[in-house]
Write a protein that binds this DNA or RNA. Sequence first.
DNA 1: CCGACCTTTGACAACGATGAACCTCGATGC
DNA 2: GCATCGAGGTTCATCGTTGTCAAAGGTCGG
Lengths: 350, 350
Amino acid sequence: MGRSVTMRTVAEKAGVSTKTVSNVINGTGSFSPETEHRVRAAVEELGYRINPFARGLRSQRTGTIALVLPNVYQPFNAELAEQVIRAPETQGLKVVVETTRGDAERERAVLSTSHKELVDGVIYVPQALTPEEYLPLPLTQPTVVLGERPAQAAGMHLDYVEIADEQGTHAAVSHLLAQGRRRIAALCEQAEPRAGGRRLRGYRRALEDAGVAYDDSLVIGVDNADLWSSGAGAVARLLRTRVRFDALFCYNDVVAIGALSVLTRSGVAVPDDVALAGFDDIDAARFASPPLTTVDPQRATIARRAVSLLRSRMDMEDFRELPGRCESAGFVLRVRRSSSATSGTPGESP
Amino acid sequence: MGRSVTMRTVAEKAGVSTKTVSNVINGTGSFSPETEHRVRAAVEELGYRINPFARGLRSQRTGTIALVLPNVYQPFNAELAEQVIRAPETQGLKVVVETTRGDAERERAVLSTSHKELVDGVIYVPQALTPEEYLPLPLTQPTVVLGERPAQAAGMHLDYVEIADEQGTHAAVSHLLAQGRRRIAALCEQAEPRAGGRRLRGYRRALEDAGVAYDDSLVIGVDNADLWSSGAGAVARLLRTRVRFDALFCYNDVVAIGALSVLTRSGVAVPDDVALAGFDDIDAARFASPPLTTVDPQRATIARRAVSLLRSRMDMEDFRELPGRCESAGFVLRVRRSSSATSGTPGESP
DNA sequence: CCGACCTTTGACAACGATGAACCTCGATGC
DNA sequence: GCATCGAGGTTCATCGTTGTCAAAGGTCGG
């Protein structure tokens, strides 16, 4: 292969010093248009690519951000990752997707020491760690958290992009109530500092606002680790208890599709006997039979806001110079046939 | 924050030289148990973490492999990525997932120059490039390709893990034939050097083996870029043409679920009027209504074989010293209710 | 007791890019 | 006419590790 082509090779070919090459490439310092042209020509001709290790070692910048999620096999996460990678704000950055498998140790490692030198910033979707656990960790790089901003985070130099868990669920359940449903079951992950807890709050508040009594026997927990069968299992249990219900709010679309599968098999008609709503608006939701009513948490917006918050902090001298910020992504209720016999066609929504 | 803790800090604390610290950490050279203990204690106490840039710069090893795919939002890709990350063979390696969006330029870049210094090896799922295009590229690092090994690859130092596209499809279509179906439509991506072409070959061969005539009007192309609506759209077109069909083989499960959605809406009963089979065995397939018969290409096996081939080549002095190898992953036909009224229950298959 | 030989350790020079400091030369201000 | 300035460069040290080589200390056969 011969020696690899370095900045020195380019410099020699262009008849300048390596520093000048560096300047041209990074747009730092000053140089004449003529020099710039010679350097660029040499780069082109030699097929020179900058060595990211050397650069990283020297400048402590990597041009890479990490997206830290529990996994990528759950559609919401996969589609979120896609949005982060595609967001226009991401231009010029590399995104590495890091999965933690919901392992507390891994999450801890990513947030504090381990990544310091590898990435310029982190977008973190907490799963195993509660705010009480992750907030005290010494932050070593700019970080954006996706999820509700806890009160304790006020003083920290951490940015948040809030997902409309509670409001979205409130809207979905209110919609079910508006269809005349009164016995609305909920299949929901119940862990409190997490999305499940927040969605459950939205559920209760919607019932309350409509003056419908909360009934404990209508709420079934699901397990985050295997949502597909969890949804199916939960609905099977619910059917066995013979508790009457005419609607079902599900923690997310995956649970809802699992549930739908069992309902259909059991001869329960959706939406006639039971109206169904999920959360996330994953691609599969539009193509369920019937298409699934769901809350679109606006992944694209989440991704753009997160990257943009992160970038602004990455561009600062010291990323701790700004107090923590917090933005929200909003939501859109996508009403489809699983909750209302007449509206929604597959393939419609943007 | 103070100065960051480097190997020198550790060395001073342990009263040895930096090289000795390096030796202990990497298990190179030799050192007394006593020294080792002192060094490890110092590392522990200072919370020292090796700087990957410095190491990478020096040793040209990164402990990272790249998984290069068109995207991660399609469930097959997401689940494949998960398997690669989780494979026991991956122990001790970091996996970065790189998406190309089916862009030829990006694929080219990853295969030749661009990644050279960042990763020790690449697992590549071709999409935009044909073998004619990617084989001539100068390989700069160990590479494993997922997909059919073309004849031209014989002399190259490239390993392949073959997915049983043709055989799997043959089995699925044969199964449909065994159910007594004779007018079997196919919704398939048709590009020849890719999976679509290979699956279509399996389809034709199965018909042939059963002595059923191939009918061009039963084959409809789908578009890889948006498979969900593509499947739905294709089936809608098929229904409009009024061509009679009693079974449907789909390029993959996503297409199948899109198709199922339209069939159900149009009052076509699955499997009574039309039996349905897909490919990939994504999680969602088990929870479709009815559950989807599909070909499981054994993602876990694919992932393990790929990583293990890659590792062996990474461990060599020069990765070109071994001729190209090729392994196959096999497949399992998962028969569920979409193709046979009596068998298959949701949640059963492993 | 001496040299051969091994084990353990340390000094030093890379790896490739960049920040700090400095040098040169023509233009500008007073 | 002399100090000053900025544009356009350059030189050199340095980021944190690891490969090379040599030295220090110990063992052992003769």
